[in-house]
Structures are given as C-alpha cells and as structure tokens.
C-alpha cells in the first residue's frame, strides 16, 4: 500500500452536500423563527442556538463522529463543528470531574477559534475606530 491520498472528489462532494444541507436546514429554522415573530435581523441568534443544541445532542448520542467521518468539512465548518468540539471535550473529560475535567477542558479544541476571533476583531475594531 503506497501512502494513500485522500479520496478528494468524494470528500468534496460530501462536504458540499452535507454543508449545503445543514445550512438549508438552518435556513428553515431561521424562517421558522421569523414566522414566530422574531425580527429577521435577530433571527440568526436562536437559529445558531438551535443548531448548536442539535449538534450537542448528536455528539452526546455518539452519532456525530460517525457522520463527520463522511461529511468532513461539511459538518466541521458550520457551527455544528464548534458545538461538537466543545461537547466532545466536555463529555470525554467528565471522568476527570465536572470542575477540573469538563469545566477546565471544555474549550481545549475550540478555544483558538474564540481567541483568534477576538484578536482579529480587536484589530479590526481599532482600525475602524482610527480611520
């Protein structure tokens, strides 16, 4: 067996289908909140919360990683991936206690997204304030 290359075409197709699918479901949830009376500009928030909830449950049930093996970036890039990284750490390290395990390690994987998001926003904000 030579060092096998990833099946690129298959991965791209699944990433497109799963990513598009998840965002379409998200769009349906967003439209649902709008019809429930949430102003359109703010409907993104409960939508994101709902999607995070679903991804967290899937992680807890142990099915998220099975889907992610196929979906790849299609499920990792949307906020489902963020929810999974937090939930999987929280669940895994419960064994080391709620405080020192779950509490301390929850953001081990997702932390850099928050850190670099904040750092970027800081400089963007500074630049926008100064120009």
């Amino acid at each position: 067996m030579k060092q096998p290359k990833p099946p690129l075409l298959k991965n791209i197709i699944y990433a497109f289908l799963f990513g598009g699918g998840i965002c379409t479901i998200g769009q349906a949830i967003l439209n649902l909140f709008v019809t429930l009376g949430v102003p359109e500009k703010q409907a993104g928030n409960p939508t994101v919360a709902t999607v995070i909830f679903i991804a967290a449950v899937m992680t807890g049930l142990g099915v998220f990683d099975d889907i992610a093996r196929v979906a790849g970036a299609g499920i990792a890039v949307p906020v489902t991936g963020f929810a999974n990284s937090v939930t999987s750490m929280a669940v895994e390290f419960r064994r080391e206690g709620l405080v020192l395990g779950t509490g301390s390690k929850m953001f081990a994987l997702a932390g850099s997204v928050i850190v670099f998001g904040v750092v970027t926003a800081f400089f963007i904000g500074l630049i926008s304030a100064l120009i």
Partner: peptide, 17 residues
C-alpha cells in the same frame, strides 16, 4: 485516542494511511 489525539466523540476525518 483521548491522550494522543482527540476526545472520542470528536468528529474528524482520519487520513487513509
């Protein structure tokens, strides 16, 4: 897996090799 790589429920694709 938990020690060397990722929590066991983390969703990622392992390379074929």
């Amino acid at each position: 897996e938990r020690q060397y790589r990722y929590p066991t429920e983390y969703g990622y694709q392992r390379p074929g090799y």
